[in-house]
Amino acid sequence: MDNQTIVNFIIKRTQNFLIDEANLNLKFTDIAFNQTNKLELKHITAIQGINSTIGLFVALSFDDKIIEKICETMTEGLDISEEEKSMYLDETAGEILNIIVGNATSDFQTKGHAIMISPPIIIKDAKSLIRHKNAYFYTANLQTDIGDINLYVIGPSDLFDQTLDYKEV
């Protein structure tokens, strides 16, 4: 299965999550492959690795308003103090990505081989990622009424560490 097909499955799962689970009004999805040489990570970004016959990183980068809204939905009815709010924003970002990627593994599974995914990690500082010649970037910008989410699929995974910095050779 080629990367583009895998990316399409992940995009579809992301769209479904935003509509069905987060109850957001998804207006538009803009998809690109290698048309950008620079990715801009927003204030909260969740990153997860996929390890199988493919090695990719998937990242979801959230506008503040969106992650706050989804966090409200996902923590509804739970007793969360003011001091815990920031932690639960991070937890929400990680769990959204975990659900999307975990569910998507059923779309690109191969018989007899379990696809492993790494625990999600959260980057809290906005940063840029420049594309080197061997790297590939797939991007999808998902626009809702209250802000944007950027979905990035980045590979090959052996070029990067888990915070998406290039490994030193």
Partner: peptide, 12 residues
């Protein structure tokens, strides 16, 4: 209780 939807993971 997991997000993994793949058949092989259920079997495992």
């Amino acid at each position: 209780i997991t997000s993994h939807g793949q058949e092989q993971m259920v079997i495992d």
